[in-house]
Nucleic acid binder design. Structure first.
Lengths: 110, 110
DNA sequence: TCCAATATTCTAGAAACATGGAAATGAATA
DNA sequence: TATTCATTTCCATGTTTCTAGAATATTGGA
């Protein structure tokens, strides 16, 4: 991942409604949720949510598929993974000794 | 972590110079770097970098200590860890079956 | 074909943010 | 104390982003 992608992903998440939309989709799992459900859950107008979801999509954090009249969005955890990799690249110059003291445990749950 | 902290952390990183400053400190490891070194490495005026570092500090992503005339900053990976936890909370409603298909491997290196 | 449901694009005013010069602060040294 | 170095705070400016109303697709069903 290069810097601009990282900035795009981080900017996409650095906004309340979009962050909540993303987390909602993370919770929903691979089935995903239609745009309208996201709008209702977040209590935000449909057009605003649509903009949010398109920003998350451009950032590679969610993807979508059409199902009849619905467009179903789902979280793309690969996008988050790449972001984390970028953030922590060459951590402690790669020295595991040093790294340990900083990292403690960085292992995500789930 | 609550939402506002997450937004603060994400906003702090969602900006080129700050993102690079953070990554530089991640690379530097526990020893950290003085503010001036960060400014030179990023080729950004000292006062601008100082603002950047204070934003990262408020976000809990870096910490600092004074050493003589220098103020030495270091990455605080615990801050990143909390952020990741928040982003992925209740992933797939906690169902490991579903989760697997989304996660593949989310384990960071280092 | 016509209508209802769902989602997206366009737009612009309001709000928030980024930047860097100048001045101020804090710390070491002569 | 005076001087220098390192960093921070103050502030004005220009830029970007957020939001939601209105208009425009797109799809399925009567």
């Amino acid at each position: 991942m290069e810097m601009n992608n990282a900035v795009t992903s981080l900017s996409a998440l650095a906004q309340e409604s979009r962050l909540e939309a993303f987390r909602l989709l993370v919770r929903a799992g691979p089935e995903g949720l239609p745009s309208g459900d996201v709008a209702r859950a977040l209590n935000v107008p449909a057009n605003t949510v649509s903009t949010h979801l398109s920003i998350l999509t451009r950032a590679g954090l969610v993807s979508s598929r059409r199902d009849g009249r619905h467009v179903i969005y789902q979280a793309n955890l690969g996008g988050i993974r790449k972001l984390i990799d970028y953030l922590l690249a060459d951590c402690c110059q790669g020295d595991p000794e040093l790294c340990g003291s900083l990292l403690e445990q960085l292992t995500p749950h789930c």
